[in-house]
Nucleic acid binder design. Structure first.
Lengths: 194, 194
DNA sequence: GCATCGATGTGTACACTGTCAACATGCCGG
DNA sequence: CCGGCATGTTGACAGTGTACACATCGATGC
C-alpha cells in the first residue's frame, strides 16, 4: 500500500506488476488496463510510461510474472520427483501446466500470450528449457537425435497447452477434467516413448 | 459494394460479417472493431446494433464464419480420403487445422476464441463432431468405451490446437514447421491407437 | 393510391481506453 | 546548499463500445 503523502512512489515498477497480476487474477485480460493498474497503485496513468515504453510492455511484464509463478510450481513438483524416470517427470510438468491453467484461468491467458517483450532475465530457466532437459534424458547416451528431441518437446508442450485451453474453455466439470487429463497424458506418454 | 445512394443497405448483416472477415485477415483481432467494420460497409457504427446485440456478438459471428471456412477444407480433404483408415483421416483433419492456422494466422485467432455466442445453425457439423465420428470408428464394434473415445478426441484436438498455436507463435521457419508437424503427428498417431 | 407503422439507418453523446507534451516535485551528488 | 535528473501530475487527443433520440424507407391495410 503506497504512502500517498509522498509525491514519489519509490518502487512503482514492481507495484505496477503486482497490481496487474491481481487485476488479471480477478478480471482477466479485459480488466488489465493501464489506467486501472495505475489507479490501483494510487498513481496517474502517465506515470506508467516512466517505467514501461508502452502499456503492452507492462502487460508483458505481468505475463512474465505469471510464467514465473507457474515455473515455481513446476520446480517444486520436480524436486519431489527427482528419482522418477524422465517420462514421469515430463508428466509432472504437464500436470503442473494444466493445473495452473485451471486454477488461475485468467492469469493463464497471459501466460499463453506470445512473448512480445524479451524476459527481464533471459537466463532464467523457462518451461521450454525445462522440458528440453528432461526430453534429452530420453535419448540414448552419446547419440542425440535433434529431430527426435524436437518432436518430443513439441508433442509434450502442444498437448499440455491444447488440453489446458480446451478444458478451461469447454469442460467445466472437475471430474470430467481429471478423467481427461489422466487419459490424454497416458496416451501422450505412449507417443513420447515411440 | 453497397449502393450508398440508398439510405437502407439491404443486406447489412452479411456485409458486416464479410467486412469483419476481411479485416481480421488483414490486421488480426486488434483491427476488428465495430466502428471500422461499419465504416468498411459505408454505414454508421450504431447501425451494427440493429443486427447484433453487441460488438462481441459481431466478432463471434466473424469467428463462426472463420470456423466454417476451416471446416470446408477439412471436408474437402476427407472427401479425398474416404478410403483411408480412420487414423489417417484423423491426421488429415489435424493437418487441415494446422495448415489453416499457419496460412491465416490472424483469422485463426478468431477460430480459437471460446464461442461466446451459439452458432447460427447448431446442427451444422463442427470440427468436434467430425473428430468424434472418426474416433468412433476406432472402437471395437458393439463395445464403445465412452471414456476411451473422449480421451482420444481430446488428444487429437489438443495436440492439433497446441501444435498450431506454438508453430504460429514461435516457429517462423516453414521447413522446421513441416518437420515438426510430421514428427508430432506421427507420435500422436501412436498415442491415439494405444 | 395513399397513409401509417415497423425495420433499419444516422447523429450525437458518454465513459472508457492508450499515449503524449508540458509542467511539478523531490532526492542525491557536487 | 543547490542544481540536475528521475519520477511524478495534468490535460489533451484520438479511438473504442454503446445508448438514445431522430430520420428514412418498404411494405401492408384501407
Amino acid at each position: 500500500m503506497p504512502d500517498r503523502s509522498r509525491y514519489h512512489h519509490g518502487a512503482l515498477r514492481d507495484a505496477l506488476v503486482d497490481a496487474g497480476e491481481a487485476l488479471a487474477r480477478a478480471e482477466g485480460l479485459e480488466g488489465v488496463t493501464v489506467r486501472r493498474i495505475a489507479a490501483a497503485c494510487g498513481v496517474s496513468a502517465a506515470a506508467v510510461y516512466r517505467h514501461f515504453p508502452s502499456g503492452d510492455h507492462l502487460i508483458a511484464a505481468v505475463a512474465q510474472r505469471a510464467r514465473e509463478i507457474m515455473a515455481r510450481d513446476m520446480f517444486a513438483r520436480l524436486d519431489a520427483a527427482v528419482d522418477k524416470p524422465p517420462i514421469d517427470r515430463l508428466r509432472e510438468v504437464g500436470e503442473s501446466y494444466i493445473a495452473f491453467a485451471l486454477a488461475e484461468p485468467r492469469l493463464f491467458s497471459l501466460v499463453s500470450m506470445p512473448m512480445t517483450t524479451p524476459p527481464d532475465r533471459p537466463d532464467d530457466p523457462n518451461a521450454a528449457d525445462l522440458v528440453r532437459d528432461i526430453v534429452l534424458e530420453l535419448e540414448p547416451p552419446g547419440a542425440v537425435d535433434e529431430q527426435r528431441v524436437a518432436s518430443r518437446m513439441m508433442l509434450a508442450q502442444a498437448s499440455a497447452h491444447g488440453l489446458a485451453v480446451i478444458l478451461r474453455d469447454f469442460v467445466p466439470d472437475p471430474q470430467a477434467r481429471a478423467m481427461l487429463i489422466a487419459g490424454v497424458l497416458d496416451r501422450v506418454g505412449v507417443g513420447l516413448e515411440a
